[in-house]
Design a protein around this nucleic acid. Structure first.
Lengths: 245, 245
DNA sequence: TCGAAATGTCTATTGATATAGACAACCATA
DNA sequence: TATGGTTGTCTATATCAATAGACATTTCGA
């Protein structure tokens, strides 16, 4: 195994951060499930070809994230390993998708506002640019860990007051129902990935350089009329998407 | 605009790399299309709240990637901006999906081997662990830029010799056809994101810390029997996925 | 053709990153 | 309880990352 997971020097990404990212990933993939512990610092130092102090910096960062906990004399224990799965289909719903994966989920409404559609929002919602829309800013947690932050737009004429309803129900599905839309389907999803920006780092409790999965999604009613356009930013080390065709 | 795209200090990711990543992203999203140039170094330094020399390091990295070219006295010109779109559906095919987006695409076979299915491959292909399978290692280019590297597994009994056929045809669809499978469909796709490892950096011409989109996909024949399981690693700044439901 | 605006180059200094070695403290167990 | 294996702490040194300032060089338009 030695040397398989190489790290790169002089690239603007500190070795300790590269190593922390690789260990976090290895934990998530179950590579250390046999022992429930990370290999000893000296072994990791050999594996990555770095000094033990550099490995310690990486493990300190992971401890800060709550992923591992070092115990003097014993080793470094894995505290948490998780990667939530989000199925994407016509029936995509955030909370339903997490059922059986998290004991409790929460949706926090950071804010909502009425504004006019810019070119991008108008294109997705198939309305005229300048039409009033309601924008919701949300952060969603699973078991008290933030998983995604999102911005959603709704046609204002049809869904007046959706912001306050969402704040109480913590559910788009319930908010739609309260406003007379009993069912809706996912029409289109675009997926990209990028680095976390300062807002992501704050809202999702990430570290700079962290990887994000970004979805741009459009839901329609059963007649195919767009009812919601949303951009969601997921912490990539905590989630995966599944598409069943 | 000043200060919107913040950068973070003391996180193991050098400021110049964070800034390079943000500028690359801004170029890809068309933020500088009006001028075809990146803003002046002094303006960027103000925007990101760093010294001009730090911005210069970032631009030097982007110049190294061939994305920008600095011209003394004029400014820094954008040389290349691209983000290919991959539709994911039952009819997902790599090359077809790129039609009209790239003038020429190539599939390079890095190697192929016959081996026995491990637990993961067996689960996806719904075969017994230990059953012979053929593994293909590929890198796919669009307009001479590497876009994705992938590993695919096929049941060996059914698709003997698929490696050599793929090398000639550069197409899974054609290789299947040559072996008697005229049509197939995408059954399941899992999408995650992570940092590039050393193999990604080499094959996809990336820099450490770069972001990858990873798909694990399974194709079946029209009877629903798995014919291919593949793991593909895409350079995230060059692609996006679209799911139409 | 002058000057504003832009990139290019140089020196100097400070703090973060990484290596190296030594030893202390702690834990499990033979 | 002695020992091997592990994490914790300390000092020292070299290199990279970032800031600061000054000035040169090039381009383009007034």
């Amino acid at each position: 195994m030695a040397g398989i997971k190489q790290v790169q020097r002089q690239t603007g990404v500190a070795l300790w951060r590269q190593i922390a990212d690789r260990i976090r990933e290895a934990i998530g993939s179950g590579a250390y499930d046999a022992t429930g512990m990370v290999p000893p610092e000296t072994a990791l130092a050999t594996q990555f070809g770095v000094n033990r102090h550099t490995v310690r910096s990486a493990l300190a960062a992971l401890a800060q994230e709550g992923i591992v906990r070092a115990v003097q004399g014993r080793g470094t224990l894995i505290e948490r390993k998780e990667r939530l799965n989000f199925p994407i289909s016509r029936r995509t719903r955030f909370t339903d998708g997490l059922r059986d994966q998290a004991r409790e989920t929460h949706a926090l409404l950071l804010g909502h506002a009425e504004e006019v559609a810019d070119a991008e929002v108008a294109r997705w919602l198939r309305i005229e640019q300048g039409t009033p829309v309601i924008r919701l800013e949300t952060v969603r947690d699973a078991d008290k860990r933030p998983v995604a932050r999102g911005t959603s737009w709704f046609p204002a004429a049809r869904f007046a007051g959706i912001g306050e309803i969402y704040r109480k129900t913590e559910s788009i599905t319930k908010a739609f129902a309260a406003l007379g839309l009993s069912d809706y389907v996912r029409a289109t999803t675009e997926i990209t990935a990028t680095h976390a920006d300062s807002g992501d780092i704050a809202d999702l409790e990430l570290t700079p350089g962290a990887v994000l999965l970004i979805t741009k999604a459009m839901n329609t009613d059963l007649e195919g009329v767009p009812v919601q356009y949303s951009i969601s930013r997921f912490a990539a080390d905590r989630v995966q998407f599944t598409i069943e065709n």
